[in-house]
Design a protein around this nucleic acid. Structure first.
Lengths: 110, 110
DNA sequence: ATAGTAGCTTTGTATCACAAAGTACTTTTT
DNA sequence: AAAAAGTACTTTGTGATACAAAGCTACTAT
């Protein structure tokens, strides 16, 4: 049986527009830093977000797999250095996520 | 060895202020509805958020356990009816969460 | 008597998050 | 030369989370 009501008003239907990739506190933090900073290295991210090596690596891999983050490996002096940067795709996806959150907040305030 | 830098600027330190209870898409949706609606019953929430019975029940229990939601059981006619409502604590916690998200968004825009 | 409604609980599974330990290679210290 | 430490992981193991599906209880409607 189908509801007699028209499709539900008062429904936060834009919830579906939230990006699952950014629901995690850690990945939200990573993207927040990366969209501002242009590039950050392993150590800096680890320090900023208070992560263990493994945790940083695996969350970053998730963002890489989605094409939201790009990795550049280089040497500084003779030490290996890994730089992470947000891609255009990542920036757009993150911006869209924030827009959706904004809508939610606005709707709450009205 | 301690970093030579002063405590990190450019750090989204308010990430810690995000409420873990509202990181879940489902519980975010529940609270969004409940802070607006004063009270909603099982069927309505299930329909609005597209949840299975068990999923609704367990997420709601999580919010109950935190004191964010209150349950009222009654009969409508002779049918059992379960109403859920956001508590004051829940409303405040949710509002605080949204404020934190707002800060994050503002910081991103600047 | 049978089926249906309302609201769960239980069970099982897949995914997630995370710390800790291990790895490979290099550099620095002793 | 040997030992310690840095860099960036990967692997392993564990506990938490999310979810669907099925079962269950106590009605009510037919």
């Amino acid at each position: 049986m189908v509801s007699l009501f028209m499709s539900n008003t008062n429904v936060p239907n834009f919830l579906d527009d939230l990006n699952k990739a950014f629901e995690s506190r850690v990945r939200l933090g990573m993207m927040s830093l990366l969209v501002v900073e242009e590039a950050l290295d392993f150590a800096r991210l680890k320090d900023s977000l208070q992560l263990s090596d493994g945790n940083l690596a695996s969350h970053m891999q998730a963002l890489e797999k989605l094409g939201y983050v790009e990795v550049r490996k280089q040497f500084i002096g003779r030490k290996p250095n890994t730089q992470y940067a947000a891609t255009e795709l990542g920036r757009k996806a993150f911006a869209a996520h924030l827009v959706t959150l904004e809508k939610l907040i606005k709707q709450m305030q009205s």
